[in-house]
Design a protein around this nucleic acid. Structure first.
Lengths: 189, 189, 189, 189
DNA sequence: CATGAATGAGAATTCATTCAT
DNA sequence: GATGAATGAATTCTCATTCAT
């Protein structure tokens, strides 16, 4: 017996949205997976769109929180700050089932509201901050930040997705090497 | 008056699937966009699933064809062969509206049939071939090929997606620099 | 090459309506079976309802014509006149594929128009005439004519249907015995 | 407010299928008649075909049950056993609206599944049993059982159909006389 | 005349949402 | 609060009919 049905619903929705997408998932299916009645979902969320936005925001919040723990001081070397971002996101992907997959596949969706979009931008800003600082210090390529973020974020999403589905086995040391690769992609040579 | 309604339907579907996803797109919407009657779609495709698979396969085919033109000789330096892949995909993304976005966002979808999955794998194999060869020559990091592909493919998909939506302006020289970045991500340092 | 497309269409429709019923048969299916274009059907019949009524009426007409050939004189014994009816209908059922099945399964249909219903009644009247005369002569049971017709007609329809589908093999002498049975059902004992 | 919507749906379907046939009846029409929402039908029956098969089987089951009540001992005279069949079926036709009409007009339909066909055959076997026994005892004509069943069953279906539509008024004694006629059709003279 | 591709109204079916229990 | 049966609007798909060739 779970003490929190709201959480059960969000977890069920996360898994299903990540696998089949928002439009490919029916509310009764979420209810089944969450082991609640279909009507119960509407006690906690006004409708399906509110549910997906709540879920999206909670995921981004958790991801952001993860990124904000043990943050190296602003004065720390860019290399260290980049590592922090990489390994925190990696940690989050490992800890929260399909959350990163869900975020990545839904962050452009037309049903996301202003608030969800804003939170996603704020998350990207955390990465942007490091990248911009790195560019100023001449450590990172002087390309548009969006391009640099896209490369790093795109690469990471694909990688963690593959690890989730088992297409890529996570061996010791692999993560560190991949981090190195991502850094090499954007650093000045 | 269009000569080829089948093509009109595929083009309309491509645009809509790329924007809203398969499940978020209704058949009448596709019909409207294609300027055909709803029933007409069913003269060309047995059902919506057949439509999305046909579209997916034609896109992959075109992308594969693009990758196969002006292929550098197998003996060419890996660097050149990597550039070829990058710029061909880039060319395809520029030429075919939302095709790359559609492919990327649907390549894991549960409604893709065996044949579609196979064609997608064959496309990835084209990239894998260069990467494996590069690893053998000691030019590319000795990481699992899937990881290397994921990084390059993930980065490219995000980048071309951003260019499509205007979040990233395509300035002269930018593409070449980005290509350099992608190469730096995977090469041996 | 058939010289009469109208006939081809009617024949195709007869077979299909007998097998699947009017509502279970699509116009394109009739066109395929008749080896004509779908549009051609509308050159000969204003719509599907007109087609089924035309077919019904032509079938009834043929059946009626068959019943009217070699009619025994009104003064002939009832037994002989009954035999005539039985064997003529049997002859018609044998000669015209699914016609009797079609008639039987559609004679109550809501899409039959006044004219079709009238013709069917006229056909029944041919049987009714003999039965009424038989009742007057005291040869046939003094039951409502409708009941007597129902028995004889119902039995015959089932029997010829079975012969058509092969559930009942037509052996020499069988028909005569069955006729005897039908007569026994209604005659005075 | 009805206790049992499943029953309401089956009753509505029975009436409509009997009148217009399976293909001539739309699901929303059934829903209207049953006073339920269209979607409700799909909570009880996976689709229209499952509905018609369920209905067919329930009707056959009821008819079979009726035939099995107060069965005369196997040692009873054939005449009595025949009467039992006739009057039981008659009783069923009288009690259950359009059930016999529905059964008769759909027992050959291509959408009936194996199970439905089997149950119908088992029902016919109940009649066949008496007829076969009668033939062995020399009481019933030595014709193929299928032919004898066809006559009796065909006649009865037509008769009860007529009574339902009012084309034949059910007066006291009529039924007994008709039963006599049916018996006369098949008995040895 | 004949055709069959094209159509859109209508059929079967699904699913977000409500509400009586 | 929690439920899940019930609903009907929306979706997928079919098919009678039209019309350009």
């Amino acid at each position: 017996m779970s003490k929190n049905k709201r959480m059960d619903i969000l977890e069920a929705a996360l898994e299903l949205f990540a696998e089949r997408g928002y439009d490919g998932t029916t509310v009764p299916t979420i209810a089944d997976q969450a082991q609640v009645g279909a009507g119960t979902i509407y006690r906690y969320f006004a409708n399906k769109e509110v549910l997906v936005n709540s879920l999206f925001q909670e995921c981004i919040q958790q991801l952001t929180n993860t990124l904000m723990t043990n943050v190296p001081p602003a004065a720390a070397p860019i290399r260290e700050r980049f590592k922090h971002i990489f390994f925190r996101i990696s940690e989050y992907a490992g800890a929260h089932g399909q959350a990163l997959t869900f975020i990545a596949s839904h962050s452009d969706a037309p049903f996301l509201n202003e608030s969800s979009r804003e939170m996603f931008e704020q998350f990207l800003d955390l990465i942007r901050g490091v990248i911009d600082e790195g560019k100023e210090q001449g450590m990172i390529c002087p390309l548009p930040s969006n391009a640099l973020i896209a490369m790093v974020y795109g690469a990471m999403v694909q990688l963690f997705n593959m690890m989730k589905t088992g297409a890529l086995e996570e061996t010791p040391g692999l993560l560190a090497q991949i981090e190195e690769c991502c850094w090499n992609a954007i650093r000045v040579h």
